[in-house]
Amino acid sequence: MGEKMSRRPYVREVPPTTWYFRMPRYMRYMVREVTSIFIGIYTVIMLVGLMRLSEGPAQWQSFLDALKSPGSVTFQVLALLFALYNSFTWFNVAPKALPLQFGEDMAPDSVVAIGHYVVWVLLSIFILFWAGVF
């Protein structure tokens, strides 16, 4: 049956630490992942706050003062922006995991996405109200 085929497949290695530079869409993914680090740090700050609160009024006051330092305010503004970005991008893809079918037809993605925004706004208003902001 003729000459033997010589197979020698060539494997192109994927750079394990710099792969996300290869395509803009990978960078976009990585940026979103990084935003969650800020959300994580903010959660830790909240837990520290709870701890200070349990230690008494003086400790609580010093915690509140620390929050007002310029560095801390900068961090909180950044964390807020990143949290918003993270939430918006999440709500926009949530319909993928939650297909809804009304009668015969699949509901458009916007139905599930809008549902998420509505719940988010209602919950936020409720928490702000509960916290005595209004």
Binding site: R25, Y26, Y29, K96, A97
Partner: peptide, 25 residues
Amino acid sequence: TFVGACSEVCPKHVDPAAALQQVKA
């Protein structure tokens, strides 16, 4: 990890990323 690149390149609009998230759920 839901990068979503698969759905962006799929020429048949299969949206594989959606399928995977539904399987996870």
